[in-house]
Computed example of a mutant assay.
Amino acid sequence: MTQRARLLVPVVLLLVAAVLLWLASRATWLEVVAFNDQSGEVVRSLTGSDWQPALVPLALGAVAAIAAVALVRGIGARVIGAVIALLGLAAVLLVLSGVGDIDTDRAHSVVTSSEGQARTDAGPGAEGSAAVPEWSQITEISTRAAGPAATGAGAFALLAAGVVVMLRPVRAVSRDDRYVTPAARRQDAATTVESDPDSGRDLWQDLDDGRDPTV
């Protein structure tokens, strides 16, 4: 794998992961139906950020990891790769906790919370604007697959990026890989002549042949 690929592959994977996790935070994960004797039946749509608040920090962490991958080299890059893989594992845990049997008590706590969209995201009189009192009963919970699916794909991208960085980190730039100015080349040539006078013959031969010995 070339140096360019060692940098480009994890950066692309991290960008994909960040976008997918952000989309998952905006997608609907649950439709919760609550009933109380005052407002009757109330339906709440819980987005990923409502049900899994860690999605947004994970997306931001993927973005921050892009800068770390671009700047850190060698052993430090392997450490960054391990951290990225841990973020991927955290995303996997979010997926596992978001599928299967849903915790009714937790859903009740979210929809009766005084903060966020779960309580009310509409103005007075608008459809679905009724608050959900704490004494409401959850009568139905339905899941949506888009959010968990996007989270799973984002987790896979994070894990893949972490593995690539750990196994194939970008190498530190050696002196031989850096750009050497013509003046530096001439200085090196002069130093070589001083240490090995016979090498000067090659320089004169290059000049006689019309070649630049510093190139």
Rank of each mutant, 00 (worst) to 15 (best):
Q52I: 13
T191V: 04
R186N: 01
D196E: 13
T151A: 15
D202G: 10
G76T: 02
G162E: 05
I75F: 12
L93S: 10
G40D: 02
A59W: 03
D121M: 07
V16T: 10
P10T: 01
D177L: 14
D121Y: 12
A118G: 14
F35G: 00
R185K: 15
E41K: 13
R178G: 10
A65C: 00
L159A: 09
T28N: 12
I84A: 02
Q205D: 13
P133H: 10
V56K: 07
T143Y: 04
A157N: 02
S25D: 11
I80Y: 00
G147K: 04
A59V: 05
P148M: 06
V92L: 15
G200V: 03
R73V: 08
A64P: 07
L55F: 01
V83S: 11
P197V: 10
F35N: 02
Q117P: 03
L8W: 04
T151Y: 06
D208G: 02
A107S: 12
Q52W: 08
V72M: 08
A122N: 12
I80T: 14
G210F: 07
E194P: 02
V83I: 15
T192H: 11
G98R: 07
T28I: 14
W51K: 05
G61H: 02
Q117D: 13
A149Y: 05
T120D: 06
A24Y: 05
V164S: 04
P197L: 12
L159G: 03
W135K: 06
A149C: 03
A59Y: 06
A183M: 11
G128T: 09
D176Y: 11
S45R: 14
L23F: 05
F35H: 09
G128L: 13
V193P: 00
L167A: 14
I75W: 13
L87I: 01
A91N: 07
A85Q: 02
A77N: 10
R211N: 08
A65S: 15
D105T: 07
S97V: 09
P148Y: 07
T104G: 05
P182L: 13
Q137Y: 01
S199A: 15
A18H: 04
V63D: 03
A54W: 04
A62Y: 02
S97P: 00
G40C: 02
D206P: 01
T191R: 14
E140I: 02
A126T: 08
T28G: 00
V33A: 06
R201K: 11
G76K: 01
W22T: 13
D206M: 04
E127D: 11
H108R: 15
P133V: 10
G200L: 13
T192C: 05
A126Y: 12
A160P: 03
A149R: 04
N36F: 06
E31L: 09
A18E: 01
L7M: 12
A150K: 12
A189G: 09
V110R: 06
A126W: 10
A67L: 15
A65R: 03
Q187I: 11
D50E: 15
R119N: 11
T192V: 03
T191Y: 06
T214S: 14
L96Y: 09
R211L: 09
L30A: 02
S129W: 12
A145H: 04
A90D: 05
S109F: 06
L46N: 00
E140A: 15
L167T: 09
L55E: 01
P124M: 05
P213E: 08
V99H: 03
L96T: 14
